[in-house]
């Protein structure tokens, strides 16, 4: 999968029209010799297959290359500078979104078609319908207008975190809430729940012992997908809130055709998605005994 990611990022970046050297010189640079030297420095004077071979071998040896956009700074340095912004954002977002989504979804199901459920459903639909860039921009402008707190360009204080995290949390929390609600309603209608009621168990006991464990399987499945989506959507939040993280770096690198940097960031995103999927699969296995021995299933 990682090899495919390397190949994919390389091919796509080369297919996009645009000359990194012309962009480095802001479209100018009146001297042909100057352009030739820059091409040589950037390595784009070589045939494409040779560029890919060199790039692939370098990545395999742990050499992530140099950024052309940043005048030859090692890509690893840029990544190490940006990652401490992005990954805490993603982790905090998931830490907030998972319990929030499960809580709201469970309550919605518990009070299905009541006021809270209708409000939560409408809220989730609205949040999921608004493009992330619009949502983030609204929150940023709202925070500026009402609290005088504009995007400060860093995450130095607790206040700096609140609005970006809110922007990131809303969509995954809404999706988890919708999934949780649907699953809870589905499980509540199952025979084993009726049987538990017939045994005389309280509704609370039924919910926590019979409903929730089954609901969590579906929730973990969706969390695995959402974590990757949150990572990629940090690009929007980082741009709007002016945070120098991986997402912002990815956009700059693509716009300036900094192939090395863009390729490595895509690779990191893929690795992150793989690791999160693995963790979620392990969580599902721990929750659902049927997934441990699939050959035993009828």
């Amino acid at each position: 999968m990682l090899a495919m990611a390397v190949l994919f990022s390389f091919v796509v970046s080369r297919l996009i029209p645009g000359d990194p050297v012309a962009l480095m010189a802001d479209g100018q640079g009146g001297d042909p010799e100057f352009v030739r030297r820059l091409r040589q420095a950037a390595g784009v004077d070589l045939p494409v297959w040779q560029q890919f071979f060199t790039y692939g071998m370098d990545v395999l040896h742990g050499n992530l290359g140099m950024s052309w956009r940043y005048g030859g700074v090692p890509v690893a340095t840029l990544i190490l500078d940006a990652a401490p912004i992005t990954f805490p954002l993603v982790i905090v977002t998931m830490i907030v979104a998972i319990p929030l989504g499960i809580g709201v979804g469970a309550l919605s199901a518990h009070r299905a078609r009541a006021g809270f459920d209708i409000a939560a459903t409408i809220g989730a639909m609205v949040v999921l319908s608004i493009p992330p860039v619009v949502l983030a921009t609204w929150l940023m402008l709202g925070a500026t207008a009402f609290f005088g707190q504009s995007a400060s360009g860093e995450l130095a204080s607790f206040a700096d975190w609140v609005v970006p995290i809110t922007a990131l949390v809303m969509a995954p929390a809404a999706l988890i809430a919708r999934t949780t609600r649907a699953q809870v309603l589905d499980v509540m209608g199952q025979d084993y729940v009726r049987y538990a009621r017939a045994k005389g168990l309280t509704e609370t006991a039924i919910f926590f012992h019979h409903v929730l464990p089954n609901v969590m399987v579906a929730v973990w499945a969706i969390v695995g997908i959402l974590a990757g989506a949150v990572l990629t959507s940090t690009a929007v939040v980082e741009i709007v809130f002016d945070l120098p993280g991986l997402g912002q770096l990815a956009i700059f690198s693509v716009l300036s055709r900094d192939y090395s940097l863009a390729g490595v960031i895509i690779l990191i995103f893929v690795v992150f998605q793989v690791v999160i999927s693995l963790i979620c699969d392990l969580a599902i296995i721990s929750l659902d005994p049927r997934t441990r021995h699939p050959q035993d299933r009828p």
């Binding site: 940023m140 500026t144 504009s150 995007a151 360009g153 709007v240 809130f241 002016d242 700059f252």
Partner: peptide
């Protein structure tokens, strides 16, 4: 301050 996003720039100026 490096601020590529125009709306963010205006928000910071306005604040």
């Amino acid at each position: 301050s490096v601020i590529p996003h125009a709306e963010t720039l205006l928000a910071r100026y306005n604040s």
